[in-house]
Design a protein around this nucleic acid. Structure first.
Length: 208
DNA sequence: TGATCGATGCTCT
DNA sequence: GAGCATCGATCAA
């Protein structure tokens, strides 16, 4: 497959921070009935359990929304937010723990017209770089562009229409920047945790 | 180019 | 009933 090798289930079985680093540079693919879209992951945030006030799993008890987050790693945790947006997470950590990695930005690789269609944007011919960036430079934008809704809740990210591929050799940590997460000011000391990771200098990230 | 604000409905208290 | 892991329009400069 042109995106590289599909990630095996065992890939997701590593510590959450290591998985956050490892996901950068991989390719998210959604082979949907409307067509295929793919993008390279360039920005993520990790959310952890009872020590992380910003995490949906903070209370330590699964709810109907967070059930998948507490399950085994390698599955899609999708949630609905602000009454109109969806966000996609990769479940991390062992069964019962409740950790996940939010995908915050992609670099579009294939299906750009379909992405624009889903985003209700019009592209110039040829598309301008600014138009391509705004398709996927935010968690809700990339979910919309990739056709992710609650329908994909709990889907596996291996052996699935929604899948992850190793798009290149792993990105060295020296090429990854980290800093505090976005929009979690309410989370007390957890607001300062440097749990957002992005590819240094990559212009497809949601914010500098 | 950046700051501000409204939309909109689910989730959990 | 309050708040939210956001986005896009609008307004100022």
């Amino acid at each position: 497959m042109k995106w590289g090798e599909e990630l095996p289930q065992s890939f997701f079985n590593q510590k959450t921070e290591a998985l956050a680093y490892a996901l950068l540079g991989t390719v998210l693919v959604h082979d949907s009935p409307n067509g295929l879209t793919a993008g390279r992951i360039v920005e993520v945030e990790m959310y952890r359990g009872v020590l992380d006030r910003a995490a949906h799993s903070f209370r330590g008890i699964p709810t109907s929304r967070t059930r998948v987050m507490f399950g085994p790693p390698g599955y899609a945790y999708v949630y609905f937010i602000y009454g109109m947006h969806y966000c996609l997470n990769v479940v991390a950590a062992a069964n019962g723990v409740g950790e996940a990695i939010l995908l915050r930005a992609l670099e579009p690789l294939e299906g750009i017209e379909l992405m624009a269609d889903r985003r209700r944007q019009t592209l110039s011919t040829p598309p301008r770089i600014s138009e391509v960036k705004r398709l996927t430079n935010g968690p809700a934008k990339l979910a919309q562009a990739m056709g992710i809704t609650l329908e994909q809740y709990g889907w596996s990210l291996f052996n699935s229409p929604l899948s992850l591929f190793i798009g290149q050799s792993p990105v060295p940590r020296s090429l990854v920047a980290r800093g505090p997460r976005i929009n979690v000011q309410y989370a007390g000391e957890a607001a300062d945790f440097e749990w957002r990771f992005w590819l240094k200098g990559n212009s497809f990230v949601s914010r500098l």
